[in-house]
Design a protein around this nucleic acid. Sequence first.
DNA 1: TCCATTAATGAATAGCTATTCATAATTATT
DNA 2: AATAATTATGAATAGCTATTCATTAATGGA
Lengths: 204, 204
Amino acid sequence: MRVSDKHNKITQAAVKVFARKGFFNARISDIAKEAKVADGTIYLYFNNKYDILISLFEDEIGKIILQVKNHLETLSDPQAKLMFFAQNHLHLLEDKKDLAEVLQMELRQSNEFMKEYRNTKFIEYINIISAIIHEGQNLGVFNKDIAPGIAKRAIFGALDEMSRLWILDNDPQYTIEKTAEQVCNLFLKGMLADQNTSSPPISS
Amino acid sequence: MRVSDKHNKITQAAVKVFARKGFFNARISDIAKEAKVADGTIYLYFNNKYDILISLFEDEIGKIILQVKNHLETLSDPQAKLMFFAQNHLHLLEDKKDLAEVLQMELRQSNEFMKEYRNTKFIEYINIISAIIHEGQNLGVFNKDIAPGIAKRAIFGALDEMSRLWILDNDPQYTIEKTAEQVCNLFLKGMLADQNTSSPPISS
DNA sequence: TCCATTAATGAATAGCTATTCATAATTATT
DNA sequence: AATAATTATGAATAGCTATTCATTAATGGA
C-alpha cells in the first residue's frame, strides 16, 4: 500500500467524521475507526488533530479550484461563467455532501482557526468570482460601479448561505438549478421591478 | 443584587469569552473569572455550558429584533427598509463587536448545534428580510419573479459574509456605510450594465 | 531464509475541564 | 439577636481523549 493511499484514506475518513460530529466533537479514535487504522497510525501522517483539518482543506479545495478553473476556460460569457460557478458550488452539496458540510461548518469555526491560518486556497477560490466580475466589467457587460472585492464576498456569502439551508433543512423547496438561477438573477438583474413597467400607485 | 443582574453579568462575560476563544475552547472558569463569580455560581443560573450559548442567542438576538422592527415601522419605502436592515446589521459590528463575533462564529458551529436547536429567534431575524421583499413586491417596487424565501437567505448570507470579512480582516478598505450601500445596490439593481448604454464590441 | 528497515498497532499516559457538593456567606424573617 | 432561607464559593471529582511509545508486523534486499 502506497503512503499516499493511507494518507488519503485518513483524510476521507476525517471528512466523514468531521461532517458528522464537528471538529471539536470528533475523536481521533472515530477517525481511526472510520479509516480502519490504529489511532497511532494517524500520527505517522499528520502532526495533530488540527493538522488533519488544515490538510483536508488545502487538498480538497485545491482539487475543486482546478476543476472549476478548467471548466471556466471553456466559457467566454461572464454571465455564463458566473452561472456555472454558482451551479457548481451548489452541486458540491450533492456530489460531496460530507465535504460540503465540513467546509460549511468548520471553515468558519472558532476564531483562532481563521485568524491564525491564512487559508490561501479558500481565498483563491473566492477570487475566481472577482476575476469573473472584472472580466465582465472590462467587456462592458457588468456595471463598473460594482466593487469586485465586495461583490465576490456577497456572492460567495449568498451561495454559502444557500448551502447551509440545504444542509440543515431536509425539505428543500427548490432544486439546486432553480436556486442557482434565482441567486444569479438576483445578482445580475437585481430585485427592482423593470422601470418601463407601469408601476401601480403606492398606497400607504 | 437582583437575580437578573448576575444572570446578565454571566451572559455578558460569556459573550466576551466566546468571542475571544470560541465556544469549545472557552473554559467555564474563564467565564467565571470574567464575570467575577465562582465557577459553581454559573450552574445556579445555567444548566450547562451549552445552555449559556443558547440563552445568549435568544436574549441578544431577541433584543436586536425588537430594535430593528421598531425602527422599520417608521419607514414605508421597501428600498429604504432594506437599506436600513443592511446598515443596521453591519453596524452591529461596531456597537457590539464581541456579540457579532459570537453570532458569526458560533451560530454556524458544529452540526449537532444547528440541527438539534431550531433557533427560532434567528429565523425570526431573517424573516424580517422576506417580509420587506414581500411588501416591496405587493407595492410593485420589487420584481415578482424573486422568491422571497431564497432572496432573504441570499441577502443575509451576503451581509454575513461581509461581517466575516471585517472580523477577520483588520484592514477594511471600505466603510460600513459604503459596504451596506454596495450590497444593497447589488441586490436592488444587479450587476448588469444598463442596456441603453452602448456596450463595446466583445473581443475573445 | 535471514536480517534490516520501515510501517502499524493500541494500551498507557498525561493533561485538561465540566460539573458537583459540602461549606460558608449573605439576606430575610421571627 | 437568633434562626431560617437563600445565595455563593471553589476545591475535589469524574470522565474524557489527544498523544506517545514500546512492541509487533510487514516489506524488501542479500
